[in-house]
Write a protein that binds this DNA or RNA. Structure first.
Lengths: 340, 340
DNA sequence: TATTAGCACTCAACTCATTCGAGTGCTAAT
DNA sequence: ATTAGCACTCGAATGAGTTGAGTGCTAATA
């Protein structure tokens, strides 16, 4: 048995209807809802087939049908109409270019959540591959230095360095020159242990203090990315009864608060990137088990200069996929342009 | 009618019992629970009095009694036993002094939440009154400068400054000297508009570029504190049925995600500080209406050098106040010592 | 042969009455 | 002043009955 045109239409109707109402949908409804002009009986026969094929299922014997994960998948892959939708507010919002990156991302998350009525997340861009533009070491007082590193994309990192013995002006100057000439133009990931050893050698091993400082600078530069993630609209999950029983809500909320789960999502998305850049995980397909009752839509944005990040929407399986994908596309377009 | 010794004991028993079970507590229970050796009938009479006095109330005619806000208040103020409790893990945790402040605070929040089974928040310390130790302006490339400001407590702020025309070395040097001599030792809040105007005058008004740079530095220094708040254990509210219906849970979760509400809490706490430093808000007493069905316990920690922050616990009214206050005291002690 | 009308059947959800029991207030006895 | 005892209240749990949306199957129809 194969999926003919009519079965597809019926499946589509089931999905659409279920997305709207959240209730299992019966044969009579479909019979009226579609333009097929078939009686409910015929629809029933077709639906029995669709169930056998695994595209829809019955929550209990005398209920209507709801789409299975497989059914959603088919819908998402082949049956979503392309809609041109205005997301005016987003443009207005993003185009006024919040000066602070974190503000911008937070704002973006809030926007995504408000616009879709699902929970949203936005990861800060990862800067792997970013190149060092500027390094400076300055003395704050007798025993403390501050190291400032500026990378492409105007990413600034700094660190206080405590030294056991004061560093004199001349040494400081030498160090600055050394650091700048050696590190400039290198990407953060290129600065590895060998590099550091090399630097130390150049600085002269007899100066223990220099070694100490270089270690600190290396730590500053190589500092483990802690991948900030901004979330918004967690409360939206309460709008969908199928997610808001205590057990499930608790899990999802927790995932949103302790961000680890979301980290996996981000990594998954970044490594997994497809042509369109938008990925849809339905139920069990999701890379994180906490989300097995949800659908997750993620996408990658690209600020240029190797700075890539992820935005995502988490909602019920009966998510309005078209709207979400639309919104995400629109936001990505805006984000991509922010720093052009 | 006054509260005699016996009424107090009964009230205490009601509160204790309700804290444990979350169920309205009846006269018979009390009669057995306490060492008063009174029959349930007597207890009933006393409870009727207590109800009239407003310390307890009945959810419905034939149910037991639960403490009113007023009852909780009396309990918290006068009847909590001082317990010496070990919070060993906390010591171990905090004493190993996470190098990064934000890691430490996040960890603290997580600890509070885990230890108490309520939702926890920790605000980053506010630095009002903190003094500038060091200011430096460096050139990154032709059109971009980076301003670095270090304040007491080794709080570092920095900002990129784009200039329309390149700044030459000499000007940069002059600016650095000017900035350091004028700003050093001032508290961040002392650097106001007048101060800035003064600086500009000294820099010489004919140099438009200088003015531009000073504005940017001022912005860096005076940068609006955005008061980072770390939260943990939001999921814990699902453990208490009286908070986990959709409506309430949604509100609380939202307050935890969009941090504004918590900001009010922090400000309230910092201005309102009492002798003990620990404040308990029960139900409607809470400064934020979102928390009207909860109890909120807050406290102030002090890292010295004018750096103060807030920790807080949000849970149901039937919160184990003794444990919470204990835990908070312990954590505060640890926090206070971290930077001594 | 594909479609449909019709019918018996299923089952969650709702209603309604009943029971149960924890709790109360009151009164009379101690 | 305390208590035993009793009638009373009322939410919660139970269970029977009803409803209605939905199904599968079969026989009639186009």
């Amino acid at each position: 048995m194969e999926l003919d045109e009519r079965k597809l239409k019926i499946l589509q109707a089931v999905v659409r209807n279920y997305l709207e109402t959240g209730e299992p949908v019966g044969s009579r409804t479909i019979s009226k809802y579609t333009d097929l002009n078939l009686s409910s009986a015929t629809i029933r026969n077709e639906m029995a087939d669709l169930e056998e094929l695994g595209y829809i299922l019955q929550p209990h014997t005398s209920a209507g049908r709801i789409p299975s994960d497989k059914g959603y998948r088919l819908y998402v892959d082949h049956m979503m109409a392309e809609k041109e939708k205005e997301v005016q507010e987003i443009k207005e919002m993003l185009l006024k270019k919040e000066e602070k990156m974190d503000q911008l991302l937070k704002q973006t998350a809030r926007l995504l959540a408000n616009d879709t009525n699902y929970a949203a997340m936005v990861s800060a861009p990862m800067v792997r591959g970013n190149k060092v533009k500027f390094v400076q070491l300055s003395r704050v007082d007798e025993t403390q230095l501050v190291a400032v590193v500026v990378a492409e994309g105007n990413l600034i990192r700094n660190n206080m360095i405590s030294v056991s013995r004061p560093v004199d002006d001349e040494t400081l100057l030498k160090l600055n020159i050394l650091l700048n000439t050696s590190l400039n133009g290198l990407s953060l990931s290129e600065i590895n242990l060998g590099m550091i050893a090399n630097l130390k050698a150049q600085a002269g091993a007899h100066e223990a203090i220099v070694s100490e400082v270089i270690d600190a600078v290396a730590a500053t530069i190589g500092e483990e990315e802690d991948l900030e993630i901004y979330t918004s609209g967690a409360k939206n999950i309460f709008k969908y009864p199928e997610l808001s029983d205590n057990q499930k809500a608790s899990e999802i909320i927790n995932a949103f608060e302790e961000k680890n789960t979301l980290h996996s999502l981000v990594h998954q998305t970044l490594t997994n990137e497809e042509s369109t850049g938008i990925q849809v995980y339905i139920g069990d397909e999701s890379p994180v088990s906490t989300m097995k009752d949800c659908s997750v839509v993620t996408a990658t944005y690209d600020l240029g200069e190797g700075m890539k990040g992820t935005i995502g929407i988490i909602g019920p399986k009966r998510m309005d996929y078209e709207k979400v994908v639309d919104t995400m596309k629109s936001i990505m377009k805006q984000l991509d342009q922010v720093y052009k």
